[in-house]
Design a protein around this nucleic acid. Structure first.
Length: 456
RNA sequence: GCGGUUGUAGCUCAGUUGGUUAGAGUACCGGAUUGUGGUUCCGUGGGUCGUCGGUUCGAAUCCGACCUGCCGCCCCA
């Protein structure tokens, strides 16, 4: 016997969980549709060359690689030194599981550029895989819900993503704060206070400010080779907490006046904030200079969303990328997108008890099976209910009634319909309300009528 | 990938300094109850004590490795 188990960091979903997950996907999808976004899907596996090198060194390590089929050792140059591990992997594996939806999307856009109309607004809700060490809220297989607008530099797209985000989380009833920053600001800071090529080191350290505090951040910067004089120059950055968005931007404008890129970033943020304010989009938007995010392909806006009433990592993130399609040979194709994490949203809804009750108790009916001629009579009634679009079933075996009632009870079926010899001779069906215990004999049309009056 | 921690029935957990046949609650199945569930009572079944190896006369218990869940780091939804 094989002990049933699934790979580390993966999960099964029970019917209860699936109904809740579907509620999440359906809700997000309806917002995407309202914004005229179009769905696409891409394969679970991509060519490894499509994925490698797109997520930084750390990302490459977290990629699931797929062993070639057939005689995968043929012609492979085996060497045991550490440096050759990547080389060996590239000989043994030509495919890998996708790490996110953005890079496959960039590949998709380049490959299908002739068939697409730009600016292209697409959404995609599919699983991604990461060979990370699992923890709570952290899995090796999880779903992302991405929306991207590609082929346009307009900041209206950033504004729309803010708007979409507001709509999504309002639909869920989750109170969020959306943090926004701009990669150009970070570049400007690096240019002025450090060296232009230290943006990544600067960002990685700065990103941890709210987690490990100012001193530890400075220590990490030193460790990463940023000069003490540079760090001293950065000190105004640590004192932006508590200021309004406009005050933060004013300070940044002063600090970055010598950097053309930095000033552009400030201007972009100003424009987005301005639109959001004038359109009165109801969302708490917060400029946060320490927001960096690891992905190195972001070039403009950077987003991150956190739920306010629950301690958890970010539930969404995104940003603008100017050159993602460039690596696949298509230039001048700027895009901006955001990704909503389905399982994180699930955990937040669960913890705050925000799942609507009706998704758990669908209105259904079950016919008791009395066997013999009664069975056919019940099936005829069942067909009428289904024709009327009422979710319903019949217990498949004519077993003891207690057992059938028990099934209905355990499954949370709110209505049981009984039709035996007595009912059949009178052409009626006995409808029993499982909550109140009341029951009455009715024509099938009257039973249907009851549903029509109470669709929920 | 690094460090820490966890694992006993489907589920939640007891199990004495290492000592006969590893228990309880709950769930499941059957019965009390041949057209009435959620309450109650009775009974049956169910375990390679995560896996493999080691120490020992003897291991659920001690040791090691691996697997899994969780926590921290790294990174991230």
């Amino acid at each position: 016997m094989v002990k049933p188990s699934i790979p580390k960091g993966t999960r099964d979903f029970t019917p209860v969980e699936m109904m809740r997950r579907n509620y999440i996907f359906d809700t997000i999808r309806s917002v995407f549709h309202r914004h005229a976004c179009l769905p696409i899907e891409t394969p679970a596996m991509e060519n490894l060359s499509t994925l490698m090198g797109k997520y930084g060194e750390e990302g490459d390590r977290l990629l699931f690689k797929i062993l070639n089929s057939g005689d995968f050792t043929k012609g492979v140059d085996f060497q045991n030194d550490e440096q050759s591990v990547n080389h060996l992997a590239s000989q043994l594996c030509e495919k890998g599981l996708r790490y996110d939806l953005t890079v496959p999307f960039a590949r998709f856009v380049v490959q299908h550029q002739g068939e697409l109309t730009f600016p292209f607004k697409r959404y995609q809700m599919q699983p991604v895989w990461r060979a990370d060490r699992p923890q709570k809220g952290r899995y090796r297989e999880f779903y992302q819900c991405d929306v991207d607008i590609i082929g346009s530099n307009s900041l209206l797209n950033e504004v729309e993503l803010v708007e979409i985000t507001g709509e999504v989380f309002r639909a869920f009833g989750i109170d969020i704060v959306m943090k926004i920053n701009n990669r150009k600001i970070l570049t400007g800071i690096a240019e002025i206070f450090c060296n232009a090529d230290q943006v990544t080191d600067l960002c990685v350290a700065l990103d941890k400010l709210d987690k490990i505090g100012r001193e530890a951040v400075c220590a990490e910067m030193l460790e990463r080779g940023i000069a003490q004089t540079s760090i001293d120059g950065l000190s105004p950055l640590f004192e932006l907490g508590g200021l309004s968005n406009h005050e933060v931007l004013d300070k940044l404008a002063t600090m970055l006046s010598a950097s053309e890129t930095g000033m552009k970033g400030v201007e972009e943020l100003r424009t987005v904030l301005d639109y959001v304010a004038k359109l009165q989009i109801p969302i708490q938007l917060e400029v946060d200079v320490t927001l960096a995010r690891g992905l190195n392909y972001y070039t403009g806006a950077i987003f991150e969303i956190k739920a306010k009433d629950v301690a958890m990592g970010s539930i969404s993130g995104g940003g603008r990328y100017d050159n993602l399609t460039g690596i696949f040979g298509l230039k001048n194709m700027s895009g901006v997108g955001i990704s909503y994490g389905a399982e994180r949203i699930y955990d937040v809804l669960n913890e705050l008890n925000l799942f609507p009750p009706h998704i758990m108790t669908p209105i259904t009916a079950m016919f008791v099976n009395f066997g013999g001629d009664d069975e056919l009579y019940a099936l005829q009634g069942l067909k009428r209910l289904r024709d009327a679009n009422i979710p319903s079933e019949i217990y498949p075996d004519p077993v003891k009634m207690g057992k059938q009632m028990n099934y209905a009870n355990a499954k949370g079926i709110p209505y049981v319909i009984m039709a035996g010899e007595n009912e059949r001779s009178q052409g009626v069906y006995t409808l029993k309300n499982m909550q109140t215990g009341e029951q009455q004999a009715l024509q099938i049309d009257d039973i249907i009528g009851i549903w029509m009056k109470n669709p929920k």
